[in-house]
Design a protein around this nucleic acid. Structure first.
Lengths: 213, 213
DNA sequence: CCTCGTTGTTATTGAATGATTACTTACCCA
DNA sequence: TGGGTAAGTAATCATTCAATAACAACGAGG
């Protein structure tokens, strides 16, 4: 059932349990959105009871806020690392960094939930508290690409645009339908290119897990 | 309160009322998503009672399906018209059609709700019935751009990517924060370019309406 | 003028869900 | 070894929400 914690009924220090819940919540929030996800679904995915989820985070809203912070944190860390690596061996041309960051972005789908819960947050601008966090985090990404990676505003825009298309295809669960249709196949190959196999593998694992649920 | 129907208590033919509800539902679903929107909020926005909404569409789900069909239909119609116009005065270069379609896309935010409810649908791939419709409609757009507009797969990908970035910025409600921050301003100007004023005007109207709600 | 279909409402219900309370069970260490 | 604290659950509550039922008013046409 759970993709995070198969063995339950084990007593675990709060800090560790916290991370388990955040990981599970990322998946469930990413899958069904803030309103669509229930604290009970998250609890089951983490292998614990629903009241414990609520007591550890206070409210569903603050749990989502922490999920968002964790997801954008991981994304920013990933980019920062890639930029730092590129800078210290600064022989490569500018265009190379863009491809590196793009590849790093696609790699993030291995930790499923990160990209999808980010995308869910980006559609919650109407919400007073979540919307503020989402805008702030999105702008952090923008500034890192412009100031640290040295992209021009147009380059940042193009990069972000490709990322948002990627998120959309994931949100549509299009990779799960690879091969079922000529247009689907073409679009997926064109968008993911060399990373397509990784995406399909992750989808395949997910399908296996869902089957045992 | 409502932006669709100020005068209520008027008896209206079912077909017309239906369209009012769809327009109101587009706004509310676009604003809060499928799970976050309630049939009561939609009913209020349309100036009628909640049970009438349910009775006219059967279920909330089938209402959303119709909202999605209406939104993607309007988008496809808009593109088809633009392509037809471009073809009959086929003197312009290929690149010009891309800019025309992009402008047409941005113009759609005047009918607020269309782009946002589409985007909400695109994040519901997990849902058996809505996910199927969303994928089908997304692929219809892909095929129209490739087959009717004559784009290469890469051109379609780039075009769709810019559209998804646009949707994301709308979902974040970033235009409502134009000027509040250097990065926000730069990103919005870079993304919307000559269409920025239109976007800000629409946002301004929306703010006025919300204030009287 | 009466009646029947259309347009709509108020009242209500049953299920889902976030949150709270009160209770258990294991582990640590003095 | 025993008590206190950390980890966790079962039971339950209050609310929200989609859906249903029952009813009301309007109007066209015989």
């Amino acid at each position: 059932m759970s993709s995070v914690n198969e063995k339950q009924s084990e007593r675990i220090p709060a800090a560790e349990r916290r991370e388990q819940i955040l990981a599970a919540a990322s998946l469930v929030f990413g899958e069904r959105g803030y309103f669509g996800a229930t604290t009970d679904q998250i609890a089951r995915a983490a292998g614990i009871s629903q009241p414990y989820v609520v007591r550890m985070f206070g409210t569903k809203e603050s749990l989502f806020v922490e999920v968002l912070a964790r997801a954008s944190g991981k994304l920013l860390d990933t980019f920062a690392l890639e930029i730092a690596q590129w800078k210290e061996q600064s022989g490569s041309p500018d265009r190379e960094l863009g491809r590196r960051l793009g590849a790093a972005y696609v790699n993030l789908i291995e930790d499923r939930g990160i990209l999808l819960s980010l995308m869910q947050a980006f559609s919650m601008g109407h919400d007073a508290v979540i919307g503020d966090r989402a805008r702030t985090d999105f702008l952090k990404i923008y500034r890192m690409l412009r100031d640290d990676a040295g992209f021009s505003p147009e380059e940042v825009r193009t990069f972000l645009a490709e990322g948002m298309l990627l998120n959309t295809l994931l949100g549509l669960r299009l990779p799960e339908h690879y091969g079922s249709d000529e247009a689907t196949t073409e679009l997926l190959e064109c968008t993911f290119q060399t990373k397509l196999q990784l995406v399909l593998d992750v989808v395949g694992e997910h399908a296996k897990e869902s089957a045992t649920a």
